[in-house]
Design a binder for these strands. Structure first.
Lengths: 168, 168
DNA sequence: TTGGAATGTCAACAAAGCTGACGTATTGTG
DNA sequence: CACAATACGTCAGCTTTGTTGACATTCCAA
């Protein structure tokens, strides 16, 4: 081990100490609570849960998506998604139409009422996000997104990238 | 509305568009899955859940903490925490000792075995965090933390700040 | 045409949150 | 001292959201 071969530790690698990593972990945990808090409050009033929000969000994002596609995006079992979807369909927030090419598939759309709830939920969530973004500034936001993307599983990142490109 | 009074929109406020905010929201959702994936795998083997992980994490961070304090950090009810805590104590991962100054309080510590599991879980979680940090670089990490902190509820941020200072 | 794959539904169960009620030990206060 | 408040534990019961397993329907390809 040659002496004096010190790498540029002082400024560039301190952010990789266990201490820094732990702070990042705790920040992630605490921030996620804030992230879900506002939609959760709205959902509770209507006796829906976070799972309903997720379904509504991604149906809004990809109108006409199939149950199977939604499944792989959300990363849950079809039985779990089905329960949520059933209530949303019963309540008239989501429309499920049998596929024309493949009749096994169901294509999912938000109804007018469903779109209204989507709007209400995403407005609430965006308000907090906007405040956080504004407080932190554009450079911080870029870093925020970079780290989050690097944190995803490969398969998950594919879903994310696909969603990202859809409206770019 | 005076014409030509355009603010510096082009570069500085594009990150506040609904589109950008939506991407941030989805990034948060997908990244959180990666964030919990590795510990979840370890926990499943031992038939514990995420709730056990959280308890273990914060007992490790604040040895001797009381049940009440843990409650307010985790933001759950005592009944919910108690179920988790009871199994951890039964399994010999956590030690609960009657307070000396106030005998109503229980002070919580990790046993040797509990510390071993904590180590295993946080190693796994840190590994992913480290990879993400390394990939994104120090500037991005600073931004990441800034945005997360701005996203927290006020009360939650107080907990976070208190934890942060504990080892600085 | 028939058997396997894909899609979606029903039933039953588990984890982890919640409320409400109650018991016990201890502390602090009028 | 008597009594209210606090800290903790527990029982019962409910909700949301995840899981497996079994099964019906539909499509496609051998």
């Amino acid at each position: 081990m040659p002496e004096g071969s010190s790498p540029p530790m002082g400024q560039s690698l301190l952010f990789l100490t266990d201490e820094q990593l732990r702070k990042g972990i705790e920040a992630m945990f605490f921030a996620y609570r804030g992230f879900t808090a506002d939609p959760d409050r709205i959902l509770a009033q209507k006796s829906y849960g976070r799972a309903h929000h997720r379904a509504i969000h991604f149906i809004h994002r990809s109108p006409g998506t199939t149950v199977n596609n939604l499944l792989s995006i959300l990363g849950v079992t079809k039985q779990s998604l089905n329960r949520v979807l059933r209530t949303l369909i019963e309540d008239g927030l989501v429309a499920s139409t049998v596929g024309t090419r493949d009749k096994r598939e169901r294509h999912l759309h938000l109804t007018t009422e469903g779109a209204a709830l989507e709007r209400e939920l995403s407005d609430a969530q965006r308000d907090r996000m906007r405040a956080a973004y504004r407080a932190a500034g554009p450079a911080a936001v870029a870093g925020f997104r970079q780290v989050l993307e690097a944190m995803m599983d490969d398969e998950t990142r594919h879903h994310y990238e696909a969603m990202k490109e859809k409206t770019e």
